[in-house]
């Protein structure tokens, strides 16, 4: 089905179908729920305002994931100082999402911290692939489309990312074979 981004029905359809994937991917790049929400929202705004016609739902989804990925990476690159200040302000403004987020990390203890550290330390090309795979639930073909690389390349990157994660998580108490 053709998707016209300014058509209200198409927009709603894409929004409902893609939101979960987008927020998961975005959250695992920036690790902050409030920021992730803002960035995903910005991606949908761009989607609507760009007035693009996609041949099908999948293409619209790839486009959105690409935009969210870029927004999230840009956010990270903008510098830790700025984002740290922003986080402070956001948390002070009692962001509901951020509160829940913090609570969850507290509940889950060290495991989440270790996982995040391991994922964050991956080189960007491997990190993005593993986030799209493990959190976005995308298959190799979709990952290839989003990142503009071949399926074979995706396969290799997923494997390398897992190897690296295995190394960095090895010896961690929380990681039980």
């Amino acid at each position: 089905m053709e998707i016209k981004s300014t058509d209200n029905d198409s927009f709603r359809l894409v929004y409902d179908k893609c939101y979960s994937v987008l927020i998961r991917i975005c959250y695992h790049v920036v690790y902050n729920m409030d920021i992730a929400e803002d960035l995903v929202q910005e991606a949908f705004e761009r989607f609507y305002l760009k007035n693009i016609t996609f041949p099908n739902e999948d293409e619209a989804r790839y486009w959105l994931i690409r935009v969210v990925r870029n927004l999230a990476l840009n956010h990270l690159r903008r510098g830790k100082r700025e984002s740290a200040m922003l986080d402070k302000v956001r948390n002070r403004a009692a962001g509901k999402a951020a509160d829940k987020d913090a609570q969850r990390i507290l509940d889950e203890g060290e495991t989440i911290k270790e996982v995040r550290k391991a994922v964050s330390e991956l080189p960007e090309n491997l990190r993005m692939v593993i986030i799209l795979k493990e959190y976005g639930g995308l298959d190799y073909k979709s990952i290839g489309k989003v990142l503009g690389i071949s399926e074979g390349n995706v396969k290799i990157r997923v494997h390398r990312a897992r190897k690296k994660l295995e190394e960095s998580l090895a010896g961690d108490e929380a990681y039980v074979y």
């Binding site: 998961r24 959250y27 729920m33 989440i112 996982v115 493990e134 959190y135 994660l165 295995e166």
Partner: peptide, 14 residues
């Protein structure tokens, strides 16, 4: 072992 990595990553699911 590979499954274990996926499982541990899944602990950080939203």
């Amino acid at each position: 072992r590979l499954k274990g990595i996926s499982a541990i990553l899944a602990k950080d699911e939203l």
